[in-house]
Structures are given as C-alpha cells and as structure tokens.
Design a protein around this nucleic acid. Sequence first.
DNA 1: CAGGCGTGGAA
DNA 2: TTTCCAAGCCT
Length: 358
Amino acid sequence: MAPSNPRDWNAPALRARLLKWYEANQRELPWRQNKDPYSIWVSEIMLQQTRVAVVIDRHRVFLERFPTVDALACAAEEDVLALWSGLGYYRRARMLHQAAIYVAENLNGRMPTTSAELRKLPGIGAYTAAAIASIAHDERVAVVDGNVERVLCRLAGWEASSGSGATALRKKIDGLASELVDPRRPGDFNQGMMELGATVCLPRNPQCLVCPIAEHCVTRGEHKAAPRARMVSREIAHALCVQTRRGEREVLLEQRPASVTVMPGMWELPALGNADVPEEHLRMAVRHAIMQVNYFVRIRDVNEDEVTELAGPAAGKRRWVRADELAGLPLTGLARKVLTRAHLLVAASGSKAAAMLL
DNA sequence: CAGGCGTGGAA
DNA sequence: TTTCCAAGCCT
C-alpha cells in the first residue's frame, strides 16, 4: 500500500524510475530535436486538445513557413489561419499570432523565459507556460495536463469530482505534481509524466504491467472519469459549384461572418437550404464531427444558375476561388476535406508540394 | 465555474 | 455505426 501523505511518496525513487523509462521509451518528435523555445511554444499550442499524430506534420510545415517569432509576427493573420486549417480551435492560431506580434514589438523578438512571464501572453495558460519554461529553460515547475492529472489521480487513488470539489481536487493534484517534479531535470520529468499518460497510463486500458512507477501507485489502474455530453446527429448539404475560366478551375466559396462564434472568417462551401439531395446531383457524402454534433454532409453538384435558388440565406461573402489559391485560404476542416476529395486541393499531410503552394 | 471552441481516427 | 476523445484556454 502506497502512502497517502505526499511526503512519503519516495520521490527520489519515483523520479529515477520515470526518467530512466522516459530515456528509453520517449518517442522521437519534431519538437524534441532541439530546445528552441519558439518551436516548443508552437508545439504546445498545437497539442492543446489535439493528438500527437496530427501535430507532427503540421508542426514541421508551420516552422518551415514561420521559422522564428519575428517571421510569425510579420505574417498576415489570414496566412497563419490558412496554415492552421484543419487543426481546429482556430482561436489558438489567432492568439499565437497576437502573442508573436507582442514579443516582436515589445520584447525585441525575445520570448519570455520564465513561466510567470510566459503566462501573460495570450493563449498561454498555466500548463503551456510551465511546459515551455521547464522544457526549454529547465525551470523547476510542474506541468499538469490531462495526462498528468490522470496519472496522479491513479497514483494517489483520487476520484474525479464535480463542482467545488473539482477545484479542491485540482489543488491537490497541483500540489502533488510540484512535490514530485525533479528539481534537477524538470523538463524531462514533466515530459516523462505526459509520455507515461499518453502511452502507458491510458484512460481506458492502463498498461500497468509495463509501468515504471507501478509500485508507487495506489490503484494500479482504477480511475473514474467525469461523464460527458452525448453526441447528436444532424443532416446538412453544401454546394460544390465549379467553373472553368481562362483554363483554370474555380470553386465558389463563402466566407463565414466575423461575428459568428464558430470558425469566424473561415471559408467554406455555400450551405444549401435543403439537406435532401437527389441521387443524380449527389457528388459525395461525408461525416464531419464538430464539437458534439455529428454532421452527415451531402455535397451537391450545383451549377452557377442554381446556386442562388438552392442556397440557404447567404450568411457570408461569396467569391470564386482558383484551385491554386485554395491552399492559401483559411478553409474550414469540412471544406478542406471535400475539396481534397474532389481533387481541387492537394492533400496537405506529408506533402512537400502542398507546403510549396503556400 | 460552466460552457464554448474543431477535428479525424481509434474503439 | 456511433461514441469518445487529445499535451487547454478564455470568458
């Protein structure tokens, strides 16, 4: 039975075991190639609520296009959003861009080095500030992300609670994390904890038999998570309206208003008022999940004459976009998916050609 | 403090 | 097929 008093966790042994395991088992990831704070910063923002597998390629492309804080600060927001297209949570990109501008204009292009100073930048919360400071600058501060929270709850035998209990639990978790973090190698310790949560101490199937700190763990795998909201399904239709001018293919797109809360200013295919699409006009059907809504989307081939009568009330501003311009526009994930499938846009993932289009 | 904010792929 | 996410942050 592991002790419940944090002072009895045998932190030195736990640290040694975790670090040894991390050295042997850490994944090779682009943002671990060096300790460039800017590269780590970009990775941490991209990784917020987003899977590592998705971020790997996006991080590489982003750093090729915007290699430094100054390069990012000089960019137009539209170009930053275009590069972010498909990653979701676009506010992250806007705040990253705003923060880069602040650093360039007020800090002589030099990023803050302490977690307290980093925390003041837009888009950088407690987690991200601690992650950048500990990984890039070896600041002795613990990170607590979803992984670390789960690992520590299992380690200590704490159950998830709601309301004010959640706040109290969170304070206990933060306290334990600070107690355990290795003062000599905080960056590696923090990454080790997250790596353990991501690859061993999994939410549903914890691999306790290969866990390096199993003997420090109270529960050996038990962990109740808070229940989530149910998904709902919805049927919608969008128009795929293509024309050829001067030998170039163009597609009709619509820019979402700046005033909407979801994906403001992003470009998408015009929405149709009727979700029922006759078989002969059905170009493709895709599923697209946004938040807790499962959209079953029908894409209808529509000619220029039909588009106005078929479309719902035009929410945004429409324009014809040449196929070779598409990669430079901030497209919604759905628009990107459809245009890629329709061979109007080259798949961005793993493609040098796609990066060169930008 | 609860709710809003995206996505593609695993289970 | 449908659910459930994944290295949070802001208001």
